[in-house]
């Protein structure tokens, strides 16, 4: 299957702190790919490098065939229209309503009539399972789960090919997290998205992620499907999946 993202030998350093030491992984078209690892293992940093927020010290990242280190201005602009990003805390613009947040990219990048934009926005808002009246609310008036959904609607506004999610289920209750996972799965199937998500939610890994990488010791210590990863003898993998929380889930899960 075609690879849409290829990370090879990425090294990242913050001051003296080496975060990634030759990290390599690949995301295939149409899959839900998880980036997993403990706090401080550099998952979010890697995600930020994929979406042009940070630059690795060395190594290369290719997204949709383009080398991020050598982008021309128009290519970067083109790439930014091919993806949607859901930030951990939502990052909705607090001075705008949900509808304005969702419609922002459409208003800025297209010359569609206002009415059509309105309809697209309301359709996206419904698609992520928000009630119609949420369109007129400001981010401060939303609950945590609604913020995530609104932010997802914003990420999906331009029908991106790639969707990046930074800990989409953190801060949600288990029922909300489960529903959000199912929503992502449904949207992937409906819209043919490729999804990259940073997560340390084992439930998400069990239920919706097709393949994933485990980051630890500054590198990728395992990559593949759940069956493939779980067979790895690396102590960090074992801690994750055979620690008390992981065992409980596997006893009930499969």
């Amino acid at each position: 299957m075609k690879e849409v993202i290829r990370v090879s030998d990425v090294v990242t350093r913050f001051g003296d702190n080496l975060v990634h030491d030759r990290v390599s992984l690949g995301v295939r078209e149409g899959e839900i790919y998880g980036l997993m690892g403990g706090s401080g293992s550099g998952k979010s940093t890697l995600l930020k490098e994929m979406i042009l927020l940070l630059r690795p010290e060395s190594g290369s990242i290719r997204v949709l065939g383009k080398d991020l280190a050598r982008l021309r201005f128009e290519e970067a602009a083109w790439l930014r229209r091919q993806w949607g990003v859901l930030f951990q805390s939502g990052a909705l613009y607090s001075s705008l309503t949900v509808a304005q947040n969702v419609g922002m990219k459409l208003r800025e990048y297209t010359r569609l009539p206002e009415k059509v934009i309105d309809e697209i926005v309301r359709m996206k808002i419904r698609m992520v399972g928000l009630p119609d009246h949420a369109a007129g609310l400001y981010p401060a008036e939303l609950s945590g789960g609604m913020v995530k959904r609104a932010s997802l609607a914003r990420a999906l506004a331009m029908d991106p090919r790639l969707l990046f999610l930074d800990e989409p289920t953190s801060g949600l209750d288990p029922i909300g997290a489960e529903a959000f996972d199912q929503l992502i799965l449904k949207l992937r199937d409906m819209l043919g998205l490729t999804v990259v998500m940073v997560t340390h939610d084992l439930d998400s890994i069990w239920t919706i992620v097709d393949r994933f990488a485990v980051l630890g010791d500054r590198r990728v210590i395992a990559e593949g499907t759940l069956e493939e990863v779980i067979r790895q003898p690396h102590p960090i993998v074992r801690q994750f999946f055979w620690g008390a929380r992981g065992r409980l889930r596997s006893a009930h899960g499969q």
């Binding site: 459409l106 009415k115 697209i120 996206k124």
Partner: peptide, 11 residues
């Protein structure tokens, strides 16, 4: 065709 294109047509 993406959803913006389709919505334009539908409109």
């Amino acid at each position: 065709m993406d959803s913006a294109g389709m919505m334009l047509y539908l409109h």
